[in-house]
């Protein structure tokens, strides 16, 4: 099964690399979103407090990952999906997509972080904690969004559905991530964030496990 997953992840990466416009598009999306934020909040006048920095950062990551992951199940046409259906088990398909999307979200988050640091300033005091939190957030986002994009791809008005189905489900993950990231920015003692990290991990596990169990039923239809 792991071989299958690795092959599928490689396939996703090759595919992404071949159609570079999609990847570049989403990267540009992050940069433009950060820039729009920068201009709208008037960061130059010192209007940006740390909680706002944090919230804006996560909201940008949320929107760009929704856009990045939304295409997981629609970029390839039906015939090829049928082909995958025949040669691979649904479990390895969902796992490979989740892992691939985690990587993608992580790249987006890191890019967003870099751009944020350059133009809005970098208030983060506890870097390793912040990055670890990004990783956990990326896993949660990708597990939830991959599953929802699978669901939304079956219906017609994909873009709206993707947003309304995923936002409420992602809120627990988002809120936990925002709280941990606030602690990391303030450089608080790591012991304080520890139980929150475990809660985030537990929510990720619940979402991931549910996606893993339910995906075969979705894939079949």
């Amino acid at each position: 099964m792991w071989n299958e997953i690795i092959v599928l992840i490689k396939k996703e990466i090759t595919l992404e690399w071949r159609q570079k416009y999609a990847l570049n598009g989403i990267l540009l999306y992050v940069v433009s979103a950060v820039f729009i934020t920068y201009l709208s909040v008037g960061a130059k006048q010192g209007n940006l407090s740390i909680p706002t920095w944090n919230a804006l950062y996560w909201i940008i990551i949320l929107f760009s990952s929704v856009n990045a992951v939304a295409k997981s199940f629609v970029q390839e046409h039906q015939g090829r999906q049928l082909y995958y259906y025949m040669i691979a088990s649904p479990e390895s398909i969902i796992l490979s997509k989740i892992i691939y999307n985690t990587l993608l979200t992580l790249v987006l988050a890191l890019l967003g972080y870099t751009v944020f640091s350059i133009i809005l300033g970098n208030p983060v005091q506890d870097q390793p904690m912040f990055i670890l939190n990004l990783l956990l957030g990326a896993i949660g986002f990708s597990a939830c969004l991959t599953m929802v994009s699978g669901i939304a791809s079956k219906a017609s008005n994909n873009a709206t559905l993707m947003a309304i189905l995923s936002f409420p489900i992602i809120i627990p993950i988002l809120l936990m991530a925002i709280r941990i990231s606030k602690n990391a920015i303030d450089g608080l003692d790591r012991g304080i964030s520890l139980d929150k990290l475990f809660t985030l991990l537990a929510i990720n596990a619940i979402i991931g496990a549910t996606a893993y169990i339910l995906f075969p039923y979705l894939w079949r239809s």
């Binding site: 939830c144 929802v148 079956k154 339910l214 979705l218």
Partner: peptide, 12 residues
């Protein structure tokens, strides 16, 4: 698909 989302939503 409704059933799949219903279970998924409940888990969240």
């Amino acid at each position: 698909i409704g059933a799949v989302y219903n279970i998924f939503a409940f888990a969240a």
